[in-house]
Design a protein around this nucleic acid. Sequence first.
DNA 1: GTTCATTCCGACTCGGCTGCTAGGTTTTCT
DNA 2: AGAAAACCTAGCAGCCGAGTCGGAATGAAC
Lengths: 154, 154
Amino acid sequence: MIFSAKAEYGVRLMVELGAHDGAEPVALKAIAEAEELPLSYLEHVVADLKRAGLVVSTRGAHGGYRLARPAEEIAMDEVVLALEGSIAPMECFVNVPTERIFCSHEGDAGRACSTRLLWMRVQGGVIKALQGTTLAELVEFGARHEREPDTVTA
Amino acid sequence: MIFSAKAEYGVRLMVELGAHDGAEPVALKAIAEAEELPLSYLEHVVADLKRAGLVVSTRGAHGGYRLARPAEEIAMDEVVLALEGSIAPMECFVNVPTERIFCSHEGDAGRACSTRLLWMRVQGGVIKALQGTTLAELVEFGARHEREPDTVTA
DNA sequence: GTTCATTCCGACTCGGCTGCTAGGTTTTCT
DNA sequence: AGAAAACCTAGCAGCCGAGTCGGAATGAAC
């Protein structure tokens, strides 16, 4: 169970945006250099974020990206969802309305449901963790620990 | 973020074992047929479980597998860990002692740590969900909903 | 003690997906 | 006009997950 690099990059990108005051847009190139990420790939990442309405762009010279909302109002589940496409521990979870356990495994109706209970709980745990974290928190955390790795309990 | 099929298969396998009383071993072939899973692949799956000490095997004819402990005493984090190798939301999390946020990203010490806070929380959520679920629960849940898909809140 | 059912082991294939690149087009500032 | 940026689309290459296969070791039954 591992999130894609896209998720990591996207979060880093968002944190970077959040670290700027948002008055003027930040060019992707600047972010790529700051985070040492491949610019060409970041384009795809930011495209997802834009499509989800999390960032806004201004084109042309001196253009770039800004957060669409203040960082305090951005919960990380939105961000990860935008990047990852879905927050599901199992393939068959995609597009199933949450809060319900219904077996989409055809052919052995009801059988595989026992595992479903487990994945539901896992999914719940993940989503709760993501929802309970705002971008602002990460920005602030990052700012405080710049240049000095630290140990902190989760 | 998705668990491997191996995890799914392994959990199914464990549930199946838990559904038998454990007096006599269950052959892998029987499980494969009951769950409609490829036998040859299940061999690899069960090997992981055995290596982790979650099941015991008896070889030869009439052999098979049994749970190493009663299902009530098997928490699902052990199972998933055995199958998945690690329960980490990010590559760089592997083999980092938990409860500490320390940046293993070389080259930009301290920078990427902000994302780490997020992944720590996610990991915590997952592990808690897994630890809080016993195999016995899944077995019981599966038995109750056999043949009748149902809707249940997580 | 042969036979058969089973676990066990390792090597091998195959397809898909992720991460990344590359080139070109549009927009807008100077 | 020219530069700097967002935007778009196509494509590729390597990796890994899922599955197969063949062949051992092992032990029960007859």
